[in-house]
Design a protein around this nucleic acid. Structure first.
Lengths: 340, 340
DNA sequence: CCAACAAATGAGATCGATCTCATTATTTCA
DNA sequence: TGAAATAATGAGATCGATCTCATTTGTTGG
């Protein structure tokens, strides 16, 4: 409501002096400063960020786009980003794309119009992304999260999906599993999912095992048992699966148990992401833990560095294997049960 | 980069005409409009929202504050809000308070400086909230979500927590449970939790059963079995519990099962919130479903109405009982097992 | 007590879009 | 064709804070 001018008037000084009383208090005589501060108090003056932003050509705002907040992976990352951003005096504009390219385009355009100081994006496909091509022509700093760097030309924060997925697979192999499958959402729609499949194949190969064809679920984060059951029957029935994300793994465990399968004795289930909830389930979810909070924090700090004009080529963050009760050693009775 | 002035120059018109070519195209001769649009194209002109906001004294931005995005309840609500807001041409500034009053204060102050058109808040305590007192002196429209309206004076979107909790309890009673407890986070710290306890007591009373003292967990969203075990032993052992939120219920189920208890045969566990994941667990979580997406959408639409200057006194939204495998009929063998 | 210098303050422009009001260009109809 | 009407455009102010540069006030030393 009250602007600097009214404060200045009430204090009997010019706008310039009033402004200085706030931004560089030592440039103004103590007595004057006092008067200005008093006037501001009386008028309930509240600095107008819009005006400051226009004047300073900087908004202290970061535009964030994630696919969906219904997936805790993104929500938890965002939580960390918000804390880190606020600590640095920045605010977040948060948007969700649902992986829709047209929505991605609209959102980014909108944020550029808002003159955000930088962007943190998670896109469906970092390569061949229309929105990234567009952004490469702009000067606004932009950072990818979770997306593999690929050839998009943008710095990226996240784990090495291929290596992580290979580690997950090796964990199962080490326990004695040989018939291991991978369960994913439809069409391996995200670049991450593809890398994770890659890592799985690699680890299988390396151990002299044959990688099974991908088991595709109709939805990205919800398992339907029907797509999987064929692979659970017969002499070659799988004894373990790696899922491309935790939600998929958790819902798969639920479906399996509901159908009378035991996890892990009939089928070991491994997740990927490391959402917090997985630890508290029974059986607890064995998964690859992406350092989600660290990813969020690092994303913010890296972007701030880019905004300051520094060159950034962040390294992949370390993933970790989180052991859990959803994975066990292969049992022989399995084949009996799974054919029932 | 390029501003309207440069576009105007290139098109050989005044700023005013250039502006009109965008905001009211029919006020400008087609040929002229064409020239302006071409010039804009060439210069990659992108309207500056900051300037528009300063001029129009409206930001088309909504400030959102939730306790934490680590809890899917808030994340899922936010997801719906974002979609609704974007559809209406609004953006969201998202912040998390961790229920800290000082953080709440800072955040709101910051958003007011940013001149958001309205606020959607979920606070720890709607009554006695410093930040709400402050806001009641401001003109910025403000709406509470999940917080019971109480005497804060602000409109509120959410379910009737007391009634919903009573319904949850009655569901257990109908199934034959008599020794029903309630499990909550520390100190009944949120106003919602208190109402839910109220509803529980009411339903127990109504059925002629004695409400047990609240079982308090050390953390708001994570159960530790030790606090509960005393209540699970002896002849008066509980046969069912209602948890004040789903995360608590899910982790409690995990702990119980890990300790050798069976859910629901040893203890029926009921949640509250209805987060999406609960459906896919095994046993699936029986819970009170708050219409989270609807809450988010309604919050946005109600706030927009308030911004337009309409008076709003939203009704509570309907909750629903979501049946699930985590709740069953009481069994007699329970007491045997629970004392083991 | 005044010159020389430093400290404090003010006037005015600026950021980019848009609104009002005045002015000029174009129609329309007698 | 000319007057009255309407359509199209431009000049300048405005939103609120801040920066530059000029000016005034205050301080120090000779």
């Amino acid at each position: 409501m009250a602007d600097l001018l009214s404060v200045a008037k009430l204090a009997g000084v010019s706008r310039a002096t009033a402004a200085r009383a706030f931004s560089s208090p030592d440039l103004v005589r103590p007595a004057t400063r006092e008067r200005v501060l008093n006037a501001a108090q009386q008028l309930a003056f509240r600095p107008n960020k819009i005006a400051q932003q226009l004047r300073s050509q900087a908004t202290q705002m970061i535009g964030v786009m994630v696919p969906s907040l219904d997936n805790p992976v993104f929500a938890e990352q965002l939580q960390a980003m918000e804390v880190a951003a606020r600590a640095a005096g920045y605010s977040l504009i948060v948007t969700t794309s649902e992986y829709s390219p047209s929505r991605e385009g609209d959102i980014v355009e909108e944020m550029l119009r808002q003159r955000v100081d930088g962007l943190v994006l998670t896109v469906a496909e970092a390569d061949n992304s229309a929105v990234l091509v567009k952004l490469s022509l702009e000067t606004t700093p932009c950072l990818l999260v979770y997306n593999p760097p690929g050839n998009s030309g943008f710095p990226s924060i996240g784990v090495d999906n291929r290596a992580a997925s290979a580690d997950a697979t090796r964990h199962l192999i080490t326990l004695g599993h040989e018939r291991i499958g991978m369960v994913a959402g439809p069409l391996l729609q995200s670049d991450r999912a593809r890398q994770r499949f890659d890592g799985y194949c690699h680890a299988m190969d390396e151990a002299g095992l044959i990688a099974h064809p991908l088991v595709e679920m109709a939805r990205h984060t919800q398992a339907d048992l029907k797509s999987l059951t064929p692979a659970l029957q017969g002499p070659d029935a799988l004894s373990a699966v790696v899922c491309t994300n935790d939600l998929l793994a958790i819902s798969l465990m639920g479906e399996l148990q509901r159908a009378g399968f035991n996890v892990p004795s009939d089928l070991s289930v491994m997740g990927f992401d490391g959402i917090a909830l997985g630890k508290h389930l029974y059986p607890s979810l064995c998964t690859i833990e992406q350092p989600r909070a660290d990813i969020g924090r690092t994303a913010v700090h890296t972007l701030l560095a880019m905004i300051r004009g520094e060159e950034c080529t962040p390294d992949p963050l370390p993933h970790a294997l989180r052991k859990g009760e959803s994975v066990g050693t292969p049992t022989s009775r399995k084949s009996t049960l799974s054919t029932s």
